[in-house]
């Protein structure tokens, strides 16, 4: 079976600087891939390339076997199949929640209003926000806005969802409500590419962990293997930093509190 998403020898530059180098990554349909790595390693850029928000690249990037780096690619089509959720939600502030959700289905996909709205409301109910249908984004908490942003992408009926550090801007209390939504999608078998710093979540939800540093993929492994026996020294170092707090001596814990 050929992969749904396939990066091959993929390079990406910001001006002179190379930010992605010889990326080889295959994602099967229904797979949940979590990309980990230190800040600035190119994780987000990788997702953005898949959504056509970044240009200047070489190599090959295929979606369902079709080369996306070819000149005639209709990114508007691709974006309907590949949804993206951002760190800071980026809901349209001048529109009600419902209008945010319906903009794509009505204007881009030219769907029937009744049908699109029924879907939007069903999805809102699913993330527990149906009562917020007519409010404006600024009246919502960060966690609520992020759940709405996820629904906005889902309303386009995408095959793949990209999550770019979607909980990084949230209070710890709100992280959970967003992660639960993503976990629900994973359970349903949707293809997900997730960039996150939530290690426990990555471990729980991922079929595969991709570890990146300085624009390269250093290792790809199932989560249990990655978290218990990381192959590269850099990944070990990275994981040690995240277990720092847990490994503090008990007495010090007391002093802190």
């Amino acid at each position: 079976m050929s992969a749904l998403i396939e990066f091959q020898g993929f390079n990406k530059f910001f001006g002179e600087q190379q930010v992605l180098e010889q990326i080889d990554l295959q994602v099967q349909a229904g797979e949940v891939v979590v990309i980990l790595g230190p800040s600035g390693c190119g994780k987000s850029t990788l997702l953005r390339c898949l959504n056509g928000l970044e240009q200047a690249h070489s190599g090959s990037l295929r979606l369902d076997g079709k080369e996306l780096l070819a000149p005639g690619t209709d990114w508007r089509q691709v974006r309907q199949r590949v949804g993206m959720v951002f760190q800071s939600y980026h809901l349209f502030g001048h529109m009600s929640v419902l209008d945010n959700l319906l903009l794509g289905p009505l204007k881009v996909q030219k769907r029937e209003r009744g049908e699109a709205q029924a879907q939007a409301e069903a999805l809102l109910a699913r993330v527990g926000l149906l009562d917020k249908r007519d409010v404006f984004p600024r009246q919502l908490s960060g966690g609520q806005q992020q759940r709405i942003a996820i629904v906005r992408s889902l309303c386009m009926n995408p095959e793949v969802m990209l999550f770019d550090e979607v909980t990084a801007a949230l209070d710890p209390e709100m992280v959970k409500e967003v992660l639960q939504v993503i976990q629900g999608l994973a359970r349903e078998g949707m293809t997900l590419l997730i960039v996150t710093h939530e290690m426990a979540f990555a471990r729980a939800v991922a079929d595969r962990i991709v570890f990146m540093e300085a624009g390269r993929i250093l290792e790809q492994n199932p989560p249990e293997r990655f978290f218990t026996q990381p192959q590269s020294a850099r990944a070990q170092q990275f994981l040690e930093k995240f277990s720092f707090v847990e490994s503090l001596p008990k007495t010090l814990h007391k002093e802190l509190s």
């Binding site: 089509q77 951002f86 980026h90 349209f92 903009l103």
Partner: peptide
């Protein structure tokens, strides 16, 4: 970011 957000839903 608003522009990217709009483009990402295919506008």
């Amino acid at each position: 970011a608003q522009l990217e957000s709009g483009r990402s839903i295919g506008l």
